[in-house]
Design a protein around this nucleic acid. Structure first.
Lengths: 348, 348
DNA sequence: CCGGGGTGAGATAACGTTATCCCGAAAGGT
DNA sequence: ACCTTTCGGGATAACGTTATCTCACCCCGG
């Protein structure tokens, strides 16, 4: 048995696939000849133009079916000047990315197709991807920008590219963007933990060269300063590595930390992994499916992915419609979801 | 200072974005006029044709820079007949999908751009996405097929579409595909648990209308039959709902199950959630980041995502090169990774 | 019976590239 | 000095659509 299980009854068998050898694909001209009508009439039929008579329309449809004609959008887009396509350049397609999902949804509602590609957190690859989308004349691009130097975007923007940045701004360039209110999220987390009596609160975050990581760490330091709390051994930022995070957690606890705020979902996982017992309170940044797998469930600062995605599409469509409109930078509120891990008081 | 710190120097400020009002984009003709050369010469320069003199090349480059000329791939693709683009139609872009990642990587190595879109597990949306990619004349499509009726693919294939299915075959259609050896994976899991003394082994899987779920459940039944084990209350398939899975786990344990094999990563999470204590052995299908978060770490049947992805691209490229070559259906081996949850014997 | 307006359909010119030819000039050989 | 070869570069025709005209035709009022 080759495949495990026999599936003869599964699908309606469609029979052999007829793979034509090397013959050119039929075009509108061929359809016109076959139907005995003018080229323009075929175009009219394909585009559901009402001004074509029923008899001719039928003949054209028959010819299309007989020849297996498939319209070519490349020519259509070239002629029209518009592609009806948005590009999404995100860090990793194959990672959890609720914002991308919302972007796809919102674009579909606006009858735009989203085609996405990964930038793999590599500046050069981001550039390749974005420039490629530009050359393809996508109507607009949703970008999750990485790195610092986005100078390559300048000529594209000047040439008419419509762009919106999500999650982070494009540093040094004045373009539309949608970001979460990172500072408010950290403040909410800090206040939440403080409200339960915590005085020594630690922060474990991502590499501060990353914009969001920098914003969140800065906000944390500001919270501590405002609360009059010392920062010695309480702030740990750097790359996401298990050993580093385990170390950070150990150090913080050694200095008397009774609660931890994390910088993102991945770090939350590692922090939970590194905590030997359950007596340290945690508030994680970013919601995730894992949050409710832990015990107690993880209290998180959740971003409003839906709002971010649909706002991004709104901004992009507005930019496409009016390329010289003023730049908008939208900050989307976040929400603290109390689930248990952030509501335990410090041990007496 | 290694990381962190001040970022004032990070982004070279690029100043104001010069958003041109409504002027037409410059084309090769404009560049040719500006440089005082023929259209064809500009094309040569853009395509790095060696037959163009240094002086003229410089003049053309200057003109390109002066006008801000950006080549239009739509016209290029139309003229060339190929797009250098592969489409990837997957169930959810924004979910963990290591195969897609491998596909992107392999395609990049072959100098092909991958543009991906979600089908959202919706047959109609899958059709819209695939047909859209066909009309855009993508050179090939990687499809994670859903549903049963893929008849709409027939005319596209006849018209010259190159397609490869991953994870599941296109039922009823004879097209290239790459799938994991699901049956072998289940057999390995079963033998592994049996080897540790388990006699009552349960299976909790996905809806059997899904191809992989059906294959895995079938293989499990075959294993049980071969081992002479009764199946009463041991096989639970259906939609992924927390309540259903909790129920399934409770039933199985009630019937004396000492070990559980799961149908995929999501189900593994729910099974772990539903197990009140740690005395039931588990082997999960699909590896995931969560696997090593649990205690004990989860023993899993891991798919070889890298192999699946690169094989898919290989098949697709071969199909593009020779459209009438014989169809290949590749089965990729899976690997059992023992991490602890599958090595505990039944309670005495 | 004729002219005018509406209407369905065809010829033709774009859209922005690349490929096929062809030509003019420079170089080299006798 | 002239013929041949080479080679850089220019005119022009595709690629497969859609948009702009134009035109033939029909219907109807005057």
């Amino acid at each position: 048995m080759a495949f495990g299980g026999d599936h003869e009854n599964d699908g309606h068998m469609h029979g052999e696939v007829n793979r034509r050898a090397k013959t050119r694909r039929p075009t509108m001209v061929d359809v016109a000849r076959e139907a005995g009508v003018a080229l323009r009439t075929v175009s009219r039929v394909v585009n559901d133009d009402a001004t074509v008579g029923a008899e001719l329309a039928r003949r054209v449809h028959d010819a299309i079916a007989a020849l297996g004609y498939r319209p070519d959008e490349r020519a259509r887009h070239l002629r029209l000047g518009v592609t009806g396509t948005l590009g999404a350049a995100v860090r990793q397609l194959s990672h959890v990315n609720p914002v991308l999902r919302a972007v796809e949804r919102a674009a579909r509602a606006a009858d735009l197709m989203v085609l996405a590609a990964s930038t793999e957190d590599d500046e050069r690859l981001e550039r390749r991807v974005v420039e490629s989308m530009c050359r393809r004349r996508f109507d607009g691009i949703v970008l999750e920008p990485i790195g610092a130097d986005h100078g390559y975007l300048l000529p594209e923007l000047a040439a008419g590219l419509s762009l919106v940045a999500v999650d982070r701004p494009v540093l040094g360039l004045d373009v539309d963007c949608v970001i979460s209110d990172n500072a408010a999220g950290i403040r909410a987390a800090y206040a939440h933990l403080a409200g339960y009596g915590h005085r020594r609160i630690a922060y474990v975050g991502d590499d501060e060269r990353i914009f969001t990581a920098q914003e969140r760490a800065t906000a944390f330091r500001a919270c501590a300063a405002e609360a009059g709390a010392a920062l010695d051994g309480m702030v740990h930022t750097g790359p996401i590595e298990r050993a580093r995070i385990a170390d950070a957690v150990a150090t913080a606890r050694g200095r008397g930390a009774t609660a931890v705020i994390t910088g993102n979902a991945t770090i939350s996982v590692e922090v939970v992994r590194a905590l030997p017992d359950r007596d340290t309170a945690i508030v994680g940044f970013d919601d995730s499916e894992l949050a409710t797998l832990l015990r107690p469930d993880l209290t998180v600062v959740a971003q409003d992915d839906q709002a971010i995605g649909s706002t991004a599409i709104d901004l992009l469509r507005a930019r496409i419609a009016d390329h010289s409109r003023p730049v908008h930078r939208v900050t989307v509120p976040v929400e603290l979801l109390a689930r248990g891990s952030g509501e335990q008081p410090p041990p007496a």
